[in-house]
């Protein structure tokens, strides 16, 4: 539960400050290149930490009452393909769609074409489930199309890899696929976050229109709501989140492993966690209470 608060209050709500500036309906066109790209990346971080944070809080609260809830995320940004991403993201909804839509539609039993069509239908409905707006539908459709492309080109890519003698069992190959998947998912998230398709397309165009790499060095990033110290905290906690995700993906029983440690170590972790939430968390009279993004769905 405490980890959920760390994700929500320290990472998601902090990232939201920058994201809200870059996606502001009035001024989004003034942010180009890396400024906009970092906004998109931070939205990917925000939506994960917001939703996973809410899930961890719910899982922890339920466990206090003796109820065991299923895990809803499994390090989704470590996914190496879109299919892998959806096996790790919002697992409860994905399995619901699989059981109550994809399989009744015929699943993969009625040939390649029907399988691809079923995937497209499921992702389109998934988009609609998030809201009755075209940008959600486009977001769902994009994932559907990417999933279908993976399905169609999977064997071709494998054959191409063999021809080019690409080793697929090494870390660098997995890292490349991981980064590529993250980049694609992040670009898709722009449609999810934007208020319209027009805005989403403009932001994507703005990302590529000017490669202003100097914004990483000239301090201008720190004028968009988060000062340098806030960025440092954000990066530090994103690092912690990635480390926890890595450990969770290696060891599904991380909580049980933690509970086996000495009391003093457990206390230190609890106190450090609570301290970090209370000091670095985004809350208090100076802030609007940022609702959980998924509360609207």
């Amino acid at each position: 539960m405490l980890y959920g608060y760390v994700l929500k209050m320290i990472i998601a709500d902090r990232a939201a400050i920058y994201v809200n500036t870059v996606f502001d309906a009035e001024t989004y066109n003034t942010y180009v290149g890396f400024t906009a790209l970092i906004g998109a990346v931070l939205f990917a971080v925000q939506i994960y930490c917001d939703f996973a944070g809410y899930t961890f809080i719910a899982i922890g609260a339920a466990r206090v009452m003796g109820i065991q809830l299923m895990n809803n995320f499994n390090a989704p940004y470590f996914a190496t393909s879109i299919k892998d991403f959806w096996d790790r993201w919002h697992i409860s909804l994905t399995s619901w769609f699989r059981d109550y839509l994809y399989i009744p539609l015929g699943g993969s039993r009625k040939g390649k074409f029907r399988k691809c069509l079923n995937i497209l239908i499921v992702f389109m409905v998934s988009g609609l489930w998030h809201g009755a707006s075209w940008h959600y539908v486009i977001w769902g459709m994009l994932h559907g199309i990417l999933r279908v492309l993976e399905e169609i080109t999977g064997k071709l890519c494998a054959r191409l890899g063999e021809l080019l003698h690409v080793r697929r069992d090494v870390f660098s190959y997995r890292l490349f696929k991981m980064l590529l998947t993250f980049l694609i998912v992040t670009l898709c998230w722009i449609f999810f976050r934007a208020e319209s398709i027009r805005q989403a397309l403009d932001i994507i165009k703005n990302i590529f229109v000017q490669p202003n790499i100097w914004v990483l060095f000239d301090g201008s990033l720190f004028t968009l709501g988060l000062i340098a110290k806030d960025f440092n905290v954000l990066i530090l906690f994103i690092g912690i989140m990635m480390a926890v995700d890595y450990l969770r993906s290696r060891n599904r029983q991380l909580t049980a492993t933690f509970c086996k440690q000495n009391v003093l170590f457990q206390w230190l972790v609890f106190i450090a966690g609570i301290w970090c939430v209370l000091v670095f968390g985004i809350y208090g009279p100076g802030y609007d209470a940022t609702q959980f993004i998924y509360f609207q769905f």
Binding site: I227, L278, V279, F280, Y283, P285
Partner: peptide
């Protein structure tokens, strides 16, 4: 709704860590 920050003023000052 503001009283909590008077009993627990860390909630009011916490962002002074900067």
């Amino acid at each position: 709704k503001e009283r909590i920050y008077y009993y627990f003023d860390l909630g009011f000052y916490h962002d002074r860590w900067i």
